[in-house]
Simulated scan of single mutants.
Amino acid sequence: MKNLTVYSKDINKQPSVPMQVLVRKEIAAHIRSWRFIILILLIILTFGASLYISSMGLKDAVSNMRDPDQSFLYLKLLTTTDNSIPPFHVFLNFLAPLLGIALGFDAVNAEYNNGTLTRLLAQPIYRDNLLFAKFLAPLVVVGTLFIALVLMMIGGGLLGTGVRIEPQELLRILGFTLMSVLYVAFWLSLSILLSIRFRQPATSALTAIGIWLFFTVFFPILVNLAIRPFLPNPNYISEQEYIGYNELILNLLRISPSQLYTDATTTLLMPSVRSLGPITMEQMVGAIPSPLSFRESFLMVWPQISGLTAAMMVCFAWSYYIFMRREIRS
């Protein structure tokens, strides 16, 4: 009777064990893959180049008395540039989708084409465990990478300047890191969805890259072309109507995930940003150019965070629905 009791306890603990094994397996596979190593090197090189350029111009940026963000030294390391190369958060807007697509475009269809999917699911594991592992393992790797880069930046700043980091700066940098991981998670969930939908990895990769190029390059052009015929002459409309049209264009552009990420990271890394849209002259009267608190900036970008989270959850739920109904033995 005692042995049966111990065995039943082991059975109750069993569902968590396959999940851990699958996550460790996926992490090891990603770390050893050449495409992941190449993308990691690209991100590290861009981070190092951006950090070097920002540190070179940091003295002039901090000495600028007109800049309300001059006291935020570590935020300047991520945003200051001499216009030779973009700052790191702009680089990451370009590289993060590629990282998410590269980690997920063959997550499921490669297992199917290699014949390992049926062998995996023949083990005492559930389908949702496999799908969750395909999604969680790349996020663990990406989150570890971004946190390591941030810690290197903070450590280098402490050694180079001797200035301690303020709590507001630390919160904003952590918020930027979590926002970047969330941005990668959206493209990862989209690429996993395409890897379930299409049997060939090349098809899913090209489709994901096409979606990324559409929202990054062509979508703003299409919005401007579609809105331009309906825009009235600014000389014959009031200021309120003109601001309303600009807000309409911005809201349409925020359908793009890259625009949501740009708005969120710019607000988190630049405390002087007080609005994400056009404002009237009456609203600017009496405004003091002072930085916002982290709470106020976070509340300002909460719609962007919610939008990216909702888009990620929709893509993952759709892929979960397709994968659970897919016949894998054929």
Results as ranks from 00 to 15, higher is better:
Leu4Arg: 13
Thr5Tyr: 06
Tyr7Leu: 14
Lys13Glu: 02
Lys13Met: 03
Gln20Lys: 10
Val23Thr: 06
Ile27Gly: 03
Ile31Cys: 08
Ile31Asp: 01
Arg32Tyr: 04
Trp34Val: 08
Trp34Met: 13
Phe36Glu: 00
Ile37Asp: 09
Ile44Phe: 08
Ile44Pro: 01
Ile44Arg: 01
Leu51Trp: 05
Ile53Leu: 12
Ser54His: 04
Ser55Trp: 10
Asp60His: 08
Asp60Met: 10
Asn64Asp: 15
Asn64Val: 06
Asn64Leu: 08
Asp67Thr: 10
Gln70Gly: 05
Tyr74Cys: 07
Tyr74Thr: 07
Leu75Ala: 07
Leu75Trp: 04
Thr79Leu: 03
Thr80Pro: 01
Thr80Phe: 09
Thr81Met: 03
Asn83Leu: 11
Ser84Cys: 04
Leu92Gly: 00
Gly100Trp: 00
Ile101Pro: 00
Leu103Gln: 05
Gly104Glu: 01
Val108Gly: 02
Asn109Thr: 02
Ala110Arg: 05
Glu111Ile: 00
Glu111Asp: 12
Tyr112Val: 04
Thr116Gln: 00
Thr118Arg: 10
Leu120Asp: 00
Ile125Ser: 06
Tyr126Cys: 02
Asp128Leu: 11
Asp128Trp: 15
Asn129Trp: 00
Phe132Glu: 03
Phe132Arg: 10
Phe135Val: 04
Thr144Leu: 15
Leu145His: 03
Ala148Ser: 15
Met153Arg: 12
Met153Leu: 15
Met153Gly: 08
Ile154Glu: 12
Gly160Lys: 05
Gly160Phe: 12
Arg164Gln: 14
Ile165Val: 13
Leu170Ala: 14
Leu170Phe: 15
Arg172Glu: 01
Met179Tyr: 06
Ser180Thr: 15
Tyr183His: 14
Val184Gln: 07
Ala185Glu: 09
Leu188Asn: 14
Ser189Asp: 11
Ser191Pro: 09
Ser191Leu: 11
Ser195His: 07
Arg199Gly: 07
Ala202Gly: 11
Thr203Ser: 14
Leu206Trp: 11
Leu206Asp: 02
Gly210His: 09
Phe214Gly: 10
Phe218Ala: 15
Phe218Thr: 04
Pro220Asn: 05
Ile221Gln: 10
Val223Asp: 03
Val223Lys: 07
Arg228Gly: 10
Pro229Gly: 09
Pro229Met: 04
Pro234Gly: 03
Ser238Met: 06
Tyr242Met: 11
Gly244Asn: 08
Leu248Gln: 05
Ile249Lys: 12
Leu252Thr: 01
Arg254Leu: 05
Ser256Trp: 01
Gln259Met: 13
Gln259Val: 09
Leu260Asp: 00
Thr262Gln: 13
Leu268Ile: 05
Met270Phe: 05
Met270Cys: 08
Arg274Asp: 13
Gly277Ser: 13
Gly277Phe: 08
Glu282Cys: 06
Pro289Glu: 02
Leu292Thr: 10
Leu292Ala: 09
Phe294Val: 07
Met300Asn: 05
Pro303Cys: 11
Gln304Ala: 06
Leu308Asn: 02
Met312Val: 04
Ala317Tyr: 06
Trp318Pro: 09
Ser319Ile: 01
Phe323Ala: 09
Glu327Pro: 02
Ser330Cys: 07
